[in-house]
C-alpha cells in the first residue's frame, strides 16, 4: 500500500515518567523523526497489546523531537499507563483534530480557565501563545485544583509569573496552611478580573462540571458565545472521523473538534456529559 496507513502507530520511546499529583503523571516521549502538531490537537497513544487512548500533548508544539503527555488515572488504559516506568516503547497515531485557531486570538485579551488535568492541553496552548507573546494584549490564566497538592506543573508557575503579559490566578477548593491565594471554585477567579468581556477570547478546559459552570459564568459576564473555546472530551477510537465513537450530533468530535466554540455546540443536548 503506497498511501499512509491511518491505523498504524509510529513508535515513540518513553524516556521518563514524572508524578504530578497522586492521580496524574507526565510521560516524556521522544521520537526518531520530528513530529509536528498544532496546539489543541491530540494524539492516540497505544500501549502495545493493551489499548489506545487519546491525549492532547502538554508540551510545546515548537518542540519537535520530544513530546509530553499528562495523564490522569481514570480507566483501563490510563491505569496501565501509570504502571509504566520509562524505557518502554509506545505507539502514537496522529496528530488529529483541529486544535486552537491561535491566529484568531491575535490582538485580543485572553482568559484561560482550567481545572484538574484540563491544564494539560492548556499548558500546550500557553507555550504556543508565549512563543509570540507580544501578539496578545494580555493572557489571564485562571487555574483551579481541589487542593494545592492537586496542581500539575508546580515548577512551571514561577516561570509563568515572570512573563510580562501573563496574569496568573489560582484557586483551590480546600487550602492548606501554606496557601495564600484564592480559596473557592475556579469560576470565582473570573470575578477578580477587570477585562472587556465582550471582546475577549475565553478558553476553557477541565472536568465537565467545571466546563459547564465556567461557560455559564463567562456568558453572564458578557463573553460572546463565539469567543468561548471549549475542548470536548469524548469516547474515541479511530481519532479521524470514521469509527463513530465520538459522535456529538452533527459532529465527529475527533475530526471537527476537539476544540469547539460554544455557539457551535450549544444546541446539542449532552455537551456537558
Amino acid at each position: 500500500m503506497s498511501e499512509k496507513n491511518i491505523y498504524k502507530p509510529i513508535k515513540f520511546h518513553l524516556d521518563k515518567v514524572v508524578e504530578e499529583t497522586p492521580a496524574i503523571k507526565t510521560f516524556f516521549l521522544s521520537a526518531e523523526q520530528d513530529f509536528n502538531f498544532k496546539t489543541g490537537q491530540f494524539v492516540e497513544v497505544t500501549i502495545d497489546g493493551v489499548g489506545e487512548a487519546p491525549y492532547t500533548p502538554s508540551s510545546s508544539p515548537y518542540v519537535k523531537d520530544r513530546m509530553e503527555l499528562t495523564v490522569m488515572k481514570a480507566g483501563y488504559v490510563t491505569d496501565k499507563m501509570h504502571q509504566l516506568k520509562g524505557g518502554e516503547i509506545l505507539g502514537i497515531r496522529g496528530p488529529f483534530g483541529k486544535g486552537y485557531p491561535v491566529e484568531k486570538f491575535y490582538n485580543r485579551e485572553i482568559i484561560i480557565l482550567g481545572g484538574g488535568v484540563g491544564l494539560a492541553p492548556l499548558r500546550c496552548l500557553i507555550y504556543s501563545l508565549l512563543e509570540e507573546e507580544d501578539k496578545f494584549r494580555k493572557i489571564n490564566i485562571c487555574f483551579g485544583a481541589k487542593t494545592p497538592a492537586d496542581f500539575c506543573y508546580k515548577n512551571w508557575f514561577p516561570e509563568l509569573l515572570r512573563r510580562e503579559r501573563v496574569h496568573l490566578l489560582r484557586s483551590v477548593d480546600k487550602a492548606d496552611s501554606n496557601w495564600n491565594e484564592t480559596v473557592g471554585v475556579v469560576t470565582v477567579l473570573l470575578d477578580k478580573l477587570r477585562v472587556d468581556w465582550a471582546n475577549l477570547i475565553a478558553i476553557v478546559c477541565g472536568p465537565p462540571i467545571m466546563m459547564k459552570f465556567g461557560t455559564l459564568r463567562l456568558l453572564e459576564l458578557g463573553c460572546r458565545e463565539e469567543n468561548i473555546y471549549l475542548s470536548m472530551e469524548k469516547n474515541m477510537s479511530c481519532g479521524l472521523g470514521k469509527c463513530g465513537h465520538c459522535a456529538m450530533g452533527n459532529y465527529f468530535v475527533c475530526k471537527d473538534g476537539p476544540v469547539f466554540t460554544y455557539d457551535q455546540i450549544k444546541n446539542h443536548p449532552d455537551i456537558w456529559i
Binding site: 497489546g49 493493551v50 469509527c243
Partner: peptide, 11 residues
Amino acid sequence: HCFLLIDRQGF
C-alpha cells in the same frame, strides 16, 4: 459504519 479498534501485540 461504526467500529472499534482493538489492540493486539506488535502494535
